[in-house]
Design a protein around this nucleic acid. Sequence first.
DNA 1: GCCAACGTTGGC
DNA 2: GCCAACGTTGGC
Length: 155
Amino acid sequence: MAYWLFKTEPQTFSIEDLASRTEQTEPWDGIRNYQARNLLRDQVRLGDLVFIYHSSCPEPGIVGIAKVVREAYPDATQFNPQSRYFDPKSEPQQPRWVQVDVKLTEMFAQTVSLKRIKAETRLQDMILVKKGSRLSIQPVTDAQWQILLSMAKRK
DNA sequence: GCCAACGTTGGC
DNA sequence: GCCAACGTTGGC
């Protein structure tokens, strides 16, 4: 079982949106970066746990935890001309982009802010902290996961 | 809104 | 395959 960090912009899709899903599961679609795609396709597995990270907002940081409930399958938005994620170069016979399904397992009472993460000496190796890193699907080590969990205010 | 740091595109 | 131009991400 592996750990991950998925970024999302709360103004587009927030953890509150994830929490409100009556279907319980949510497709994590719209990933349009090859490195992130490769991780989703080749390494993210059923049962893996994911930190949900809010970016491009007043307080960037980790806001909760989700679980992977379905492994990679073609992202439908790439074939939908109405979607902001439409990719005219992707062939239905050979889909370029994939998505996984996730289910919320826990919402933190308080954001573990990027500011706090950057201030934690033991987390300096996180991809998130590395200057210029924009990767939206990131691996998190067991040690990093435990440290971040201990920093979270849990309900 | 600014801008650094990336990633992608496309001409050559 | 190189690399300039352009587009995007995301913190501040």
